[in-house]
C-alpha cells in the first residue's frame, strides 16, 4: 500500500498566501513558493494550492504559481481554483503541476471530470467537495445526478459552493463523490465546512462515509487542530491523506512532527 500522506494546503489570493504564517526565518511569509519549499524540506508528501483570486487575470496567476512552484519545489502538487476547462488544466499541468482540483466547475458541468480524465488520466483529476451536515430530515431529491440514496433516513451532508455560503440544490456529498469518481476523478478532496476553522478535528463520520463509497483515495480536510486528529482521520475515517492548513501555517506544529505522531500511532508514512 502507498504510504499515508500529509498535505499542507495553501490558500492563495493574487499570488500571496492568505492565511497568516508564524514561521521564523522566512524572507517573505506571504510568498506561497517560499512556504512550499519550507514544507518540502520538512517532509510534506504533496502540496495543494487553492487559488481564491477573484479577478479575470486568474488563469495567469495560477499558471504563474504553478511555474514558480515547479521551479523550486520537488514534490507533487495540485492546483485548484479557476480550472474550468481542459485548456485551463493543460496550462497549469504544462507549467509543472501534477494534478488539478475542480469543485464548482464540476458541479455546474459534471462532464468536465470525464474530459479532464480522458485528456490527462484520472491520476491528474481531483474532485474537491465542500460538505456540510444536513439539519433537515429529508434531502431534496430533485437532482438527477447526485440525489441521496433510496431509503435514506437522515444524517447526510449537503454540498456547498462559494465558500460554504450556497447550498447545491438536492445534492448529497456521498452520492456526488461516487458520481464524480465514476466520471473520472482519481481522488476526492473532502472538506467539512462544519469543522473547517474550528480545530475540533476532522468530521470522521463524513470521511468514513465517502471513503467507503469510492474506490479512489480520499483526502480529509477541515478541522485539524492537533496531531491526534490526523491519526484519527486515517485510522477511523479511512482517509488516505490528511490536508492541513492553520496547524502548520501558524507554526503550531511542523510537518515532521505530524509524521512522527502518525508513525507513533502505527500509520505508515514517509519519514
Amino acid at each position: 500500500m502507498p504510504l499515508k500522506r500529509v498535505i499542507p494546503c495553501l490558500d492563495v489570493d493574487a499570488g500571496r498566501v492568505v492565511k497568516g504564517t508564524n514561521f521564523v526565518g522566512l524572507r517573505d511569509a506571504g510568498d506561497p513558493v517560499e512556504l512550499a519549499e519550507r514544507y518540502d524540506a520538512e517532509g510534506a508528501d504533496e502540496l495543494v494550492f487553492l487559488d481564491i483570486t477573484a479577478s479575470h487575470e486568474r488563469r495567469e496567476t495560477i499558471v504563474d504559481l504553478a511555474r514558480r512552484t515547479a521551479d523550486n519545489v520537488f514534490i507533487p502538487f495540485t492546483i485548484g481554483g479557476g480550472i474550468r476547462s481542459v485548456s485551463d488544466a493543460q496550462a497549469v499541468l504544462d507549467a509543472g503541476a501534477d494534478k488539478v482540483s475542480v469543485n464548482s466547475a464540476a458541479l455546474a458541468r459534471p462532464e468536465l471530470l470525464t474530459e479532464l480524465a480522458d485528456h490527462f488520466g484520472s491520476q491528474c483529476v481531483v474532485i474537491a467537495i465542500d460538505a456540510k451536515r444536513d439539519l433537515e430530515k429529508e434531502p431534496a431529491t430533485s437532482s438527477p445526478t447526485c440525489a441521496a440514496p433510496p431509503g435514506w433516513f437522515g444524517g447526510t451532508w449537503g454540498v456547498y459552493v462559494k465558500g460554504g455560503r450556497e447550498r447545491v440544490e438536492g445534492c448529497d456529498a456521498v452520492s456526488w463523490a461516487r458520481e464524480a469518481v465514476e466520471r473520472g476523478a482519481g481522488e476526492v478532496l473532502l472538506t467539512s465546512m462544519d469543522r473547517d476553522g474550528t480545530n475540533d478535528g476532522y468530521d470522521l463520520e463524513l470521511t468514513r462515509s465517502v471513503a467507503d463509497a469510492v474506490s479512489v483515495p480520499v483526502i480529509a480536510s477541515g478541522g485539524a487542530g492537533e496531531l491526534s486528529h490526523l491519526s484519527a482521520a486515517i485510522a477511523e475515517g479511512g482517509a488516505d491523506a490528511v490536508l492541513c492548513a492553520s496547524i502548520f501555517h501558524y507554526g503550531q506544529h511542523t510537518v515532521a512532527e505530524a509524521k512522527e505522531r502518525l508513525a507513533a500511532d502505527g500509520i505508515d508514512v514517509r519519514r
Binding site: M1, P2, L3, R5, D45, G121, S122, Q123, G186, S215, V216, P217, D240, R270
Partner: peptide, 11 residues
C-alpha cells in the same frame, strides 16, 4: 484487489 494505477510514495 488493489487500485491500479499505483499512485503515491513507496519505499
Amino acid at each position: 484487489g488493489l487500485k491500479v494505477p499505483n499512485i503515491g510514495w513507496a519505499p
